[in-house]
Amino acid sequence: MLRTRLVFILFLFFSALSFSAMSEVIETAPAPQTTISTPPPITPPSAPEQATPVPFTASRGQLLYELQCVSCHESMLHIRSNRRVTSLSELRRQVEHWSDVLKPTWSVEDIDDVTRYLNTRFYKLEIK
């Protein structure tokens, strides 16, 4: 039992010594310098370079076709293997026919533009 007390007293003594030594180190150590660096000023982004506008290249015939015809037709109609149109005059007659179905009907210029667009885009028929 005496041995246990002696061990305990020695333990307390060395703990106290180490604690006081640590407190001296803490007290004598210089406080860390905390420097708060200011962030660089925020500069607004420079204005983006003005891009040159790309001209819209859709033809008048394409616009008319997309506004009036696409609601009923899909492009598959024009590329199917058993299509009815085999000449440019037949293509124009079909465009003219469906123009009469539409209200208001298209002008001669509108029919020509749509025929030209369809031929250029899908049919690729030779002009005779």
Rank of each mutant, 00 (worst) to 15 (best):
F19V: 11
S87I: 02
A16V: 09
I42T: 08
V95G: 03
R116N: 10
P104Y: 04
H78T: 04
T35D: 12
S81Q: 10
A16T: 06
P53Y: 01
D110E: 06
V85G: 00
L91W: 01
E109M: 04
E27A: 13
L6E: 08
L2I: 15
P44G: 02
V7A: 14
I36Y: 09
T43F: 04
K128P: 14
I9F: 13
S107H: 05
H73A: 00
S89T: 15
D100E: 11
P55T: 14
T86D: 09
E74Q: 12
W106S: 04
S15Q: 10
E96G: 06
Y117M: 01
H97K: 12
R83Y: 03
F56G: 11
I9T: 13
S15A: 12
E90V: 01
C72F: 00
L118P: 04
L10M: 10
R83L: 04
D113S: 15
F56R: 07
N82Q: 06
L2Y: 12
L12H: 01
P39A: 15
I111G: 01
F13C: 08
T57M: 14
R121G: 00
S99Y: 02
K128H: 11
F11Q: 07
F8G: 07
L67N: 13
E27K: 07
F13E: 05
Y117G: 06
R121M: 06
R80P: 01
S71V: 12
F14V: 11
V54K: 06
T38L: 15
M22T: 12
P55F: 05
V101E: 04
T57E: 14
E126H: 01
V54W: 01
A58P: 07
K103G: 04
A58K: 12
V114H: 02
P45I: 03
E74D: 10
D112W: 01
S37M: 08
E27S: 08
L91T: 02
S46L: 15
T57I: 15
S18L: 07
E24D: 09
T105C: 03
T52S: 02
N119K: 08
A47H: 12
W98C: 13
K124W: 05
R3N: 10
I79Y: 07
Q94I: 05
S89M: 05
M1K: 14
T120P: 03
Q94D: 02
R84I: 11
V101A: 09
A31R: 11
Q62T: 05
I9Q: 02
F56D: 13
R5F: 15
P44Q: 08
V7E: 14
L10F: 13
P55N: 06
D113H: 11
K128F: 10
L17V: 14
P104K: 00
C69H: 02
I9N: 08
P44M: 06
M22A: 15
A47Q: 11
Q62D: 06
A16S: 11
S107N: 00
C72I: 00
L91Y: 00
V108R: 07
T86W: 01
Q94W: 13
T86I: 12
V108K: 12
D100C: 06
P55I: 15
H78A: 09
L77V: 13
E49I: 10
R60F: 15
Y65S: 08
L12P: 03
P30D: 14
D100Q: 10
I26T: 07
L2C: 05
S46K: 13
R93Q: 12
D110G: 03
F19L: 13
A16R: 09
I111H: 01
Q33F: 13
N119R: 00
T43Q: 09
M1A: 08
L102S: 12
E66N: 13
S20C: 11
F14E: 11
P41E: 00
